[in-house]
Design a protein around this nucleic acid. Structure first.
Length: 465
RNA sequence: UCCUCCUUAGCUCAGUUGGUUAGAGCAUCUGACUGUUAAUCAGAGGGUCGCUAGUUCAAGUCUAGCAGGGGGAGCCA
């Protein structure tokens, strides 16, 4: 059996080496047939399609064939032939079948027929074996690889930012505490509060919500860096667009203003859509057929249209003149709600939109203030269907103005003295943004729930697997 | 966290005004079929109706609480 090397199913399906002896290994999707012949569909995850193994029943041990059931794992040695039947270009005439692992058909939860996505979430340990999750996971890989490729090709350095942080500097939401103290009986200070000076790091530490502040430190030395890292939010968010643990991509560029920043965001997103269409065409076709019949059209739409750029103030005017009745009334100064963003993207502009120059009160302390004294150089990229996919800004590089904003927003200086020092020592104009990786994957796969685009989702009340 | 809907067989779902022994399709098992494609055909097995309490002669069905899940909203990426 092991005298030749294994070939991946993806390679065999394209092969024209008829008559050649091959070895495949994979998981059985279905077996059907009659007393004379068995057809075994085998998938090894290399491609969405299965390879059909044809076994003449009389040549094999009856007990062995009986155990080749949906979900079992086998190796097959045989001859690659052109398939005489419709449905597949090639198939394997089996000479030898080895069984690596059986799967009791009475208890194996995956059927050959479709399952609901909700049910598959309950068996996340097995759902990678479905066509849907095979496709999603291959696309997810391609997008991760594409992101590294894009930044590498554009002269960015991949900067590894810490996952454990001692500051809540970005203020992006509730944090998970990281501690080795005895939760039953923590050391207390005289005032009854927990004494974190006795904790592992000698201070209270959390899981990061963003690598941005550290990415800025990198940009102010290497000019162009990016992070691609897990981030954590302890918000009790129960929506199809939020995870407690998700991956974020954060480029940060010195000598770069808000317009350069927008150009980069648009160019990178378009590159990734093109990359997906090129590298994952069959998986996208499958997802389009099963879940979202406008998927490829939507990806091409993003590629072929220039993103609309408008200021927050212009957007507010459009919304006020729209005649729409919104649940949240519109006036200058409000944070735009999902319904407002949806109207702008899907009804008014009908294109991806980048909004800029938001009121400083609703944006983070580090964003560069405009000369009007009211707005900051923020930018949000809004996509159809999923809303905000990117949030970014030009950063405040002026030490005094940044310090003033940290004080106004009650940022503890002791936590971010190092960040402020970059503005004291060789400061430079710089910009960056954050891209939620799973939101990107939602858009590229056409999936509706973010729990279905990450292998093992972490959400409130759910850390199984 | 708020609003709303859902929870019945392994899966997807029916189940009438509360009323005898809770149904279907698929899956599984058995059998038939000389090349199948979500194969087809025949038969069989499979259920503490999410949990707890209550109303009632009687609860899958009505009420309350709890748990889990979906959709919408907020927080955001």
């Amino acid at each position: 059996m092991e005298h030749i090397t294994r070939t991946k199913v993806s390679d065999l399906l394209q092969s024209k080496d008829f008559g050649k002896e091959v070895l495949i290994k994979g998981w059985v999707r279905t077996r059907r047939g009659n007393k004379q012949v068995s057809f075994i569909a085998v998938n090894d995850g290399s491609v969405i399609h299965n390879i059909q193994v044809v076994a003449e029943v009389e040549k094999f041990n009856e007990e062995l064939l009986r155990q080749v059931t949906t979900g079992s794992c086998i190796a097959v040695n045989g001859i690659l032939v052109e398939s005489p039947a419709q449905g597949q270009p090639v198939e394997i005439q089996a000479k030898e079948i080895a069984l690596y692992g059986t799967a009791d058909p009475e208890t194996y939860p995956l059927q050959k027929k479709g399952h609901s996505l909700e049910f598959l979430r309950e068996i996340a340990h097995l759902r990678p074996r479905t066509n849907t999750f095979g496709a999603i996971l291959r696309i997810r890989h391609a997008m991760a690889f594409g992101i590294h490729k894009y930044f590498n090709d554009h002269g960015f350095y991949y900067l590894h930012t810490p996952v454990i942080t001692g500051s809540d500097a970005e203020g992006a939401g509730a944090l998970f505490r990281v501690s080795t103290l005895d939760a039953q009986n923590p050391p207390l200070k005289e005032d009854g509060t927990i004494d974190y000076s006795q904790d592992f790091f000698g201070k209270e530490t959390k899981l990061t919500v963003s690598g941005q502040l550290e990415a800025e430190l990198g940009a102010l030395a290497l000019s162009q860096v990016y992070t691609f890292s897990p981030t954590f939010r302890a918000e009790n968010s129960n929506t199809p667009r939020h995870l407690a643990e998700f991956w974020m991509i954060e480029p940060e560029m010195a000598f770069c203003d808000i317009n350069d920043n927008m150009d980069l965001a648009e160019d990178m997103l378009k590159f990734l859509m093109i990359y997906a269409l090129e590298k994952c065409h069959e998986d996208l076709l499958f997802l389009q057929k099963m879940y979202d019949n406008e998927l490829i059209e939507r990806l091409e739409f993003v590629i072929n249209n220039k993103f609309v750029r408008a200021t927050y103030t212009e957007a507010v005017e459009i919304l006020m003149k729209s005649g729409q009745s919104f649940e949240f009334p519109v006036n200058w100064g409000i944070d735009l709600q999902a319904e407002h963003e949806k109207y702008l993207v899907e009804k008014h502009f009908k294109k991806p939109v980048i909004l800029t120059d938001y009121p400083k009160e609703i944006k983070a302390f580090y964003m560069k203030q405009n000369d009007d004294g009211k707005t900051v150089r923020a930018m949000d990229v809004l996509f159809p269907k999923i809303g905000e996919v990117i949030g970014g800004s030009q950063r405040e590089e002026n030490y005094k103005r940044l310090l003033q904003r940290t004080q106004e927003m009650h940022m503890p200086e002791k936590d971010i003295w190092w960040y402020l020092e970059t503005r004291k020592f060789g400061t430079a104009p710089h910009s960056g943004f954050g891209l939620g990786f799973e939101r990107l994957i939602l858009f590229v796969t056409g999936m509706a729930n973010i729990r279905d685009v990450i292998p093992f989702p972490r959400t409130p009340k759910n850390a199984e697997f």
